[in-house]
């Protein structure tokens, strides 16, 4: 196992190095830069201003030279300065990463718990009324665009009932725990509802498959309680496909949810990455995209290890 993990870690490092080059190149190939955009909206900006600002921001140097300078500094631990947010890259990322982890983590966990509950219940009674209702809700959740769901939720709980704030992360001048939690309720609920549909479908399908296997019949014949049959004998093999889905979803924890963040004006990683790429903020875009890549690849590695624990027949080579 140690050899397998070591090889995979080296692969991740090589992939990240290649990714950094590709991302830098792709951003560089996008036409226009922020100074060009500034000039188009400000008639007072002269040609001299444009040239001076491009030099000040280093945008007049060749792309390769800029990449090498960034790579050298990044290797030494300096991720540079975000031009768009006027602060060091790590300072720009840190609060938004915390916000995203809170939002995505809560949404992800709640969706997963509810999906397990609903998926198992539906799988145990296929084609029952409960199964049909769960299926209907799942398809509704999958089909509903997140921006529309967010708007509906805001209209109901903020505009009509006035129970919860419609946007932001805290009330100005407050920001205590209760206030922060209150601001989290609607975006978390939206994300939970968005993720609930697909997760429930996966759990239901995996459980349906597991509950028809021979060893389940054997367990029941041996007199095991229904709870033990479901939670111990069926759920364990059913978790393998779910682990894959969860591993792939881990990247979202740090890459955020652009639409939900935009609708709730929630400063998270999704909006940060979008702004960084659209604003040609190389340092910030690279750091955030590489972080998301690293987490996704790391989670996939963890999933491979988890398969081994969940199913003794799986071996790592």
């Amino acid at each position: 196992m140690i050899r397998f993990v070591s090889i995979r870690l080296v692969e991740i490092a090589v992939t990240l190095a290649l990714m950094s080059f590709v991302i830098y190149g792709l951003i560089g190939l996008m036409p226009g830069d922020p100074i060009d955009l500034m000039r188009s909206s400000d008639p007072r900006a002269s040609a001299a201003d444009v040239a001076r600002l491009k030099a000040a921001y280093g945008l007049n140097r060749p792309l390769g030279e800029r990449y090498l300078a960034w790579a050298g500094a990044a290797f030494a631990g300096d991720l540079g300065y975000s031009r768009l947010f006027s602060e060091p890259v790590l300072s720009a990322i840190r609060p938004r990463l915390v916000n995203s982890l809170l939002l995505m983590g809560a949404g992800f966990t709640l969706a997963l718990l509810l999906a397990l509950l609903l998926g198992i219940a539906a799988a145990r009674r296929p084609n029952s009324r409960l199964d049909r209702i769960v299926n209907l809700l799942c398809f509704a959740g999958v089909s509903m665009p997140s921006f529309w769901l967010a708007l509906l939720v805001i209209l109901l709980f903020s505009v009509e009932l006035r129970w919860l704030p419609a946007s932001g992360i805290a009330t100005a001048g407050r920001g205590d725990l209760a206030d922060r939690l209150k601001h989290l309720v609607l975006p978390v609920a939206t994300l939970t509802l968005i993720n609930l549909g697909p997760y429930t479908r996966f759990v239901r399908a995996a459980m349906r498959d597991a509950l028809t296997r021979d060893h389940i019949r054997t367990a029941r014949a041996k007199g095991a309680s229904e709870a033990r049959v479901v939670m111990h004998h069926a759920l364990r093999p059913a978790l393998i496909p779910l682990v894959t889905i969860l591993a792939l979803s881990c990247g979202n924890l740090v890459s955020g949810a652009l639409v939900t963040e935009t609708m709730y004006s929630y400063p998270g990683m999704g909006k940060l990455i979008f702004d960084a790429v659209m604003g040609n903020d190389y340092n910030l875009a690279l750091a955030t995209l590489l972080l998301a890549t690293a987490v996704t690849m790391g989670a996939n590695l963890a999933a491979d290890v988890a398969y081994c624990c969940l199913d003794p027949r799986v071996s790592l080579r």
Partner: peptide, 22 residues
């Protein structure tokens, strides 16, 4: 005593925030 300037990029959300009193 206090003026808060809140950034809400999406105009549909901006309208909802206005109607909700946020």
């Amino acid at each position: 005593r206090r003026v808060t300037i809140r950034a809400i990029e999406n105009t549909a959300a901006l309208e909802a925030n206005l109607l909700s009193g946020t």
